[in-house]
């Protein structure tokens, strides 16, 4: 098993008001089997032993599904592979490497400390319309409305978004279009989403703008880093939905 000696340049920032800077740390004998976050754990244990404040970073499931982990590694959200940071392993790096670790950068994702950012803007976009308005207690049988398999599968591909925000961090405009379009697409494709179709897309886009996310210029950087491979087709669909809603539906 390979062991790596690494130099880490890590963004340190005391709180949301502080001015941050890079600190350099040396870390030796890291097993290539370790995940990137386990490497960060080793760094933090090392710092703690030296009574230095450990590096704060968001992480939870470490299975690539909760969407909590959020680092920019060597300039790329989630690092060199198209996966979540927690699913990145040290076998992707070489002995002697210098690795730069920063928080996701976007005006709408303010840094709270070190590598931790506030992504509650995403929650507010969902609150604006990312749902089907049904109360608990529906008594329509689940098989009442057949949904063609290809449609259900496509809706699932959109619904698979984990809300990590890598799309925003990768975009030069910090646009949230891929995130918003994935949710809009899921409901646009399904029969359950039809009644609120026009209202939903307008509300969610308006909230996205209000949060300060930038505009989309179709460079596709978002999709290229998306750990769940959400495709640009979703953005095309969002644009079409938005236009149709604006032209044909009442203003909301």
């Amino acid at each position: 098993m390979r062991k790596l000696n690494l130099t880490l340049k890590v963004w340190r920032q005391k709180d949301d008001k502080g001015k941050g800077k890079f600190e350099t740390y040396k870390l030796n004998n890291v097993s290539e089997e370790s995940s990137f976050l386990e490497m960060m754990d080793i760094l933090n244990e090392d710092l703690a032993t030296k009574k230095i404040d450990p590096v704060a970073f968001d992480h939870d499931c470490r299975e690539g599904i909760c969407g909590t982990c959020s680092m920019v590694i060597n300039g790329k959200p989630h690092g060199p592979l198209q996966t979540t940071t927690c699913q990145l392993h040290m076998r992707s790096f070489s002995d002697g490497d210098t690795i730069t670790v920063e928080p996701f950068r976007a005006g709408a994702f303010p840094v709270l400390k070190d590598l931790v950012v506030d992504r509650s803007a995403f929650d507010r976009i969902i609150q604006a319309g990312g749902y089907v308005s049904v109360n608990t207690g529906v008594s329509v049988d689940a098989n009442e409305i057949p949904i063609p398999k290809d449609i259900a599968d496509e809706a699932m591909d959109s619904a698979t978004c984990i809300g990590c925000g890598a799309c925003v961090a990768a975009c030069k405009n910090a646009s949230a279009m891929l995130f918003v379009s994935a949710k809009v697409s899921q409901f646009t494709l399904l029969p359950q989403g039809q009644p609120e179709r026009h209202r939903r897309v307008q509300k969610m886009v308006a909230q996205m703008d209000e949060e300060g996310f930038g505009a989309c210029t179709n460079t596709g950087a978002c999709s290229a880093v998306c750990p769940k491979e959400i495709s640009l087709t979703n953005i095309a669909r969002l644009n079409r939905e938005y236009l149709t809603a604006k032209v044909t539906a009442q203003e909301v």
Binding site: V134, V138, N143, K149, A152, D153, Q186, F187, L190, Q192
Partner: peptide
């Protein structure tokens, strides 16, 4: 029933049923 009504995309067969 509840989850389908919310738009949860469960796996389906070609006939469109769950």
């Amino acid at each position: 029933d509840q989850c389908v009504a919310q738009g949860v995309p469960f796996a389906r067969e070609y006939g469109g049923l769950l």
